[in-house]
């Protein structure tokens, strides 16, 4: 059958859409590729392109300031993730399951760190910390990060708790498991996907954070993003490009592997189903 007028119109629309989307993706990926490219630049402050080198990848590990700040960031991100996901998980369950006075208030409070500009939260925490005489440092950064990670964790996990969760819990208790055993054996596994994505989200939010970290850092150590911000005046050095290139490659490879394993498992499940 010949191609109808209808199909022609559809194909043209489809083509336009594809061209448009490729253009958008290009714009989104340009910064990443430029960042990678300039990690191979043979010029100390990346002011201009001065030929190809891989020296920064070697020198990176001698630059104690950069590696130190990365380490500092990672430690904070891990701690923030653990604290936020723990409080967030039991909090999400508690807020979903129990009725108590002020629950609506707490639910509203949870939206504030998500919605209000971060700088406002940061300065508000800063003046409170100074008022009560808390010295600025890792502890204050950690509190700052948790303050925006917990709400995200609660929202993410709450979305995963279905009405079904209750009947599962009731079945478990009916079969003789106490509250804690029920939580560990039934409730937690059923919301695990939500917990995992909350953890992933908390980690990425924390490790990429500039505003809280910059405001609450004090004078001593700074996280990697804060270090980059401070380098901005003189020019960010190529070894930082090298580091972030390694980081993004690491994340992408981890993602591909994760996807690959999941697909393999799915395929196996499907094959078993067919047998």
């Amino acid at each position: 059958m010949s191609i109808s007028r209808k199909q022609k119109g559809k194909r043209r629309q489809e083509l336009l859409g594809t061209i448009y989307s490729v253009a958008i993706y290009t714009i989104l990926y340009i910064p990443v590729f430029v960042m990678m490219m300039f990690s191979f630049n043979n010029q100390r402050y990346n002011y201009y392109w001065n030929g190809f080198t891989t020296q920064w990848y070697a020198k990176l590990f001698n630059n104690s300031a950069v590696i130190g700040s990365l380490w500092y960031s990672v430690v904070i991100a891990v701690l923030a993730t653990v604290i936020s996901v723990t409080i967030g998980t039991i909090g999400a369950l508690g807020l979903k399951k129990y009725e108590f006075r002020g629950k609506k208030f707490i639910n509203n409070m949870l939206y504030i760190p998500i919605i209000v500009p971060e700088i406002v939260m940061a300065v508000a925490l800063l003046i409170i910390f100074i008022k009560i005489g808390l010295s600025l440092g890792m502890g204050t950064i950690l509190i700052g990060h948790c303050t925006f990670c917990i709400p995200y964790a609660v929202v993410t996990i709450k979305g995963r708790i279905s009405g079904d969760g209750y009947s599962l819990e009731e079945a478990s208790m009916d079969l003789g498991a106490n509250r804690i055993k029920t939580f560990l054996n039934v409730t937690l596994p059923s919301i695990m996907p939500g917990v995992m994505s909350a953890a992933f989200l908390s980690f990425t939010l924390s490790i990429d954070d500039v505003v809280m970290s910059n405001m609450l850092a004090g004078a001593k150590n700074s996280t990697l993003p804060v270090l980059i911000l401070s380098m901005n005046k003189t020019g960010v050095t190529p070894d930082v490009n090298a580091l972030t290139t390694i980081m993004i490659l690491f994340i992408v490879i981890a993602m591909i592997l994760n996807n690959f394993i999941r697909n393999a498992l799915k395929k196996r499940a499907k094959m078993e189903e067919n047998i």
């Binding site: 910064p31 993003p225 980059i228 960010v236 993004i248 992408v252």
Partner: peptide, 20 residues
Amino acid sequence: LIMIPFWTNSLMRLNSWLLL
């Protein structure tokens, strides 16, 4: 595919526009 670039440090992505 939209999210992947956003796992690169946001300041480094901004810095790329500067370099460019």
